[in-house]
Computed example of a mutant assay.
Amino acid sequence: MPSGLIALLDDVAGIAKLAAASIDDVGAAAGKAGAKAAGVVIDDAAVTPKYVTGLSPSRELPIIGKIAVGSIRNKLLLILPIALLLTAFAPWALTPILMLGGTYLCFEGAEKLMEMFGGGHHGEAEETSDDPAHLEKKTVSGAVRTDLILSAEIMVIALNDVADRPLWTQAGVLVVVGLAMTVIVYGAVGLIVKMDDIGLHMAQKPSRLSQTIGRGLVKGMPVIMAALSVIGTFAMLWVGGGIVMHGAHELGLHWPAVPVEHLAHAVAHATGPVGGLLGWLVTALISAVIGVVIGGVVALVLHQVGRLKPGAAH
């Protein structure tokens, strides 16, 4: 009996060590995969603030909270199981699906760009309502729908980095990356949209320095929010265009991905200390142009199809 108990305890200790090593493995892989998805996280953070621009300040954080919950649902209940199933049974389908998502982002960005220049209106913009609850529900729905595409890219980037690991390790990494990225993105967004309230609070402090910083925040945040709204639109375009460009490269169409990569490397090597940033900017700008072209074509086609519907305004 004692020897049997000792053997059992040895087995339990061995299992515990294996579990601890596996957790460390998941953590390390999640950190590495998350770093590779950092660019998309920045784009996600730039896109989101535009959804609360112009809404009641008292509803900003609740709306962001609802979007964050929707983002977690996207990542863990939709993307994660589908990604694991596709990886196991149809890995060839991941790239085309991502490209479809990228095309949708291009379309959304192009529609917003057309609105900025007065050349069109988003399909949902024609519907108006004075009901704040209806407007909030519509805002959250649109944000979660856009988040689905960005979250899918984050998760697929993470998945590609651990594609050779066991299935449960892949699942663990995706869960960790999904939750961490959601907290980072929407925590940052919440801080950004409430920065004017923080500035107002600081402006009421007795310290002259605090008052100066607070007034600066209050005056500057409307400009920053307007800028973020524009950045969010262009983020849709460069992310969407980049997804389509890199997806086409993976499917065997090496133009324009290869020339763009060579140009970015050439700019990076020629510009010294700021080469990394300028190389990235080259890729981002060209991706945005591709996004405008793709999104513009899709928007025009959909608008023409919409005009063919009975009763549609011409």
Rank of each mutant, 00 (worst) to 15 (best):
A266L: 11
H254F: 15
G279V: 03
H249W: 12
T283F: 09
I286E: 00
E261N: 11
L278I: 01
T271I: 02
G252D: 04
V293P: 07
V292G: 03
L278T: 06
L300Y: 09
G291F: 10
L253Q: 14
H265M: 09
M245N: 04
A248F: 14
A264I: 01
W280A: 14
V298R: 07
G276V: 03
V258H: 06
A248T: 07
T271A: 05
H262N: 08
A288F: 01
L302P: 06
P273R: 13
V293Y: 03
E261D: 13
H246C: 01
I286G: 06
G276R: 06
G296I: 02
L277G: 03
L285D: 12
G275N: 06
V267D: 11
P259R: 02
L281R: 13
V267A: 02
L302N: 08
L253N: 11
W280P: 02
A284H: 10
H269R: 13
H265P: 04
I286H: 00
G291W: 05
H303V: 03
T271Q: 07
H249A: 09
E261M: 05
L263N: 00
G252C: 01
P273K: 08
G252Q: 01
H262L: 11
P259F: 01
L263A: 15
V267E: 05
V292L: 15
H303L: 07
G296F: 06
E250R: 13
A264V: 08
V293L: 14
V260Y: 05
G279I: 00
V298M: 03
H265F: 05
V301W: 11
V301D: 09
V292I: 14
H254V: 15
W255K: 12
P273I: 03
T283S: 15
A299R: 13
L300F: 10
L251Y: 01
L281D: 04
V267W: 00
A268F: 01
L302Q: 09
H249K: 12
A299V: 10
V293A: 14
P273F: 14
V260W: 00
L277V: 15
I294Q: 10
H269E: 14
V267I: 05
G295Q: 08
P259G: 07
T271N: 12
P256I: 00
P256T: 00
V274D: 10
V289N: 07
V292Y: 06
W280Y: 14
L285M: 09
V282C: 09
E261K: 07
V258M: 06
V274I: 14
A268V: 02
H265S: 11
A266Y: 04
L281E: 03
V267S: 04
I290Y: 02
V293H: 03
S287A: 14
V267Q: 04
L277M: 15
G252S: 08
L278A: 09
L278V: 10
V258A: 13
G275F: 06
E250Q: 13
A248Q: 07
T283R: 10
G291Y: 10
P259T: 01
A257R: 10
T271L: 10
A248N: 13
V297G: 05
I290E: 06
V274H: 05
A257G: 04
L278M: 14
P273H: 12
T283E: 12
S287M: 03
H265I: 01
H254Q: 15
E250I: 00
G275S: 12
V292N: 05
V258P: 03
A268G: 04
A257K: 01
A284I: 08
I290G: 02
T283P: 00
L263H: 03
L302F: 14
